[in-house]
């Protein structure tokens, strides 16, 4: 069987669709979590969802549904603790993380299932997705995308300044709970793709990648979705291609591909940011004493290589800690 033959297989097609949907949903809600500086909330919800999966294994109910239920409950609980719990909120969150993971492993044991069963949920098992799972994933993704993109003005206002949003008449707590619930839902969407322990990567890494290049929130959000899709579909294809030689799981491949994209854009982001700092106009301050340098052999100009920074009605050339402005035959030190 060749590499291209793989794409004719049903399970591969289902896996591709699931990966694409995950790549869309996770970064969309992840952008709002990063905006609120809650990048690790997704990780916490993922840990709590392990208990949900275990409960499904124990009771014989669908682990996906019990995971959604427990993840949503956990997300709401975390949000309430964070809202009320002042500075020690992160400790309370940590308690929930570890409780969720330990509870999940313990209950899986009680259910008589081995670590291998749990591993499918912890690190993803794209290749064992049923068509029912694909429909489930598609439905949840549609809900997440419609709500996140449709309410993005409100969610942005709440995420960037809760006090202001509340005085503007928004129900801040309801929106915060909605964000937490949507995060929980997209985590269970991503559970089959990258697994609960790596899920937060798909919520955060595409956003971090996108904001290296983007300057606006909108561009960051859309860019993160593009990066997320590229990483999840690309990672799946890459792992399928590599699997002819070595045993490669799709989940880690997707996450590492996303990280590689971040690593590639990071130097560009550093350069863009330092350039925008360097080229920011100097403030116009009246009556600063300026002196003329005695002699300056270099002639500044359009292509002289020194940053030309706007300063009021003229341009200052910056080099070696000087700001030189043309004044007749010489340069003034501004």
């Amino acid at each position: 069987m060749s590499f291209l033959d793989l794409f004719a297989l049903d399970f591969m097609q289902r896996a591709l669709v699931a990966a694409l949907l995950t790549g869309l949903a996770a970064p969309a809600i992840g952008t709002f979590l990063v905006q609120r500086r809650l990048a690790l909330l997704g990780d916490g919800i993922g840990h709590v969802a392990v208990t949900g999966v275990a409960l499904g294994l124990l009771t014989g109910a669908s682990p996906t549904w019990t995971a959604v239920l427990v993840a949503v409950l956990g997300a709401v609980l975390m949000e309430l603790i964070r809202e009320r719990g002042h500075t020690n909120g992160d400790v309370a969150l940590a308690l929930l993380f570890y409780g969720g993971l330990a509870g999940g492993v313990l209950i899986t044991g009680i259910a008589g299932q081995g670590a291998a069963t749990l591993q499918a949920y912890l690190f993803g098992s794209l290749n064992s997705i049923s068509s029912e799972d694909v429909w489930f994933t598609a439905g949840l993704t549609a809900v997440v995308l419609v709500v996140t993109l449709g309410l993005s003005p409100q969610l942005f206002a709440v995420a960037s300044d809760p006090d202001f949003a509340r005085v503007a008449g928004l129900r801040v707590r309801a929106y915060n709970l909605l964000t937490a619930v949507l995060a929980a839902v997209s985590i269970t969407v991503a559970m089959r793709t990258v697994g609960l322990l790596l899920v937060s990567a798909l919520m955060v890494v595409p956003v971090a990648t996108s904001q290296q290049l983007a300057r606006s929130f909108r561009a960051t959000l859309l860019g993160a979705m593009v990066v997320g899709c590229t990483a999840s579909v690309g990672g799946l294809v890459l792992s399928a291609w590599l699997s002819f030689r070595v045993s490669v799981a799709p989940g880690p491949t997707i996450v590492l591909l996303a990280l590689a994209m971040f690593t590639a854009t990071w130097p560009i982001g550093v350069w863009l940011r330092s350039r925008s700092r360097l080229m920011a106009p100097f403030p116009e301050v009246s009556a600063t004493p300026h002196r003329s340098p005695v002699e300056h052999p270099h002639e500044h100009g359009r292509d002289c290589g020194h940053p030309a920074v706007p300063h009021g009605d003229h341009v200052d050339y910056v080099h070696d800690g000087h700001r030189h402005a043309v004044h007749g035959e010489h340069y003034d030190e501004h």
């Binding site: 905006q35 449709g150 003005p153 928004l170 904001q211 983007a214 929130f217």
Partner: peptide, 24 residues
């Protein structure tokens, strides 16, 4: 005014309209 994600001046000022916007 800055959050964890970059935003433009217009976007931040635009968020001041939330009190007057209808949902969706």
């Amino acid at each position: 005014a800055t959050g964890g994600v970059p935003a433009t001046v217009r976007e931040v000022v635009g968020s001041g309209r939330v009190g007057r916007r209808r949902l969706l």
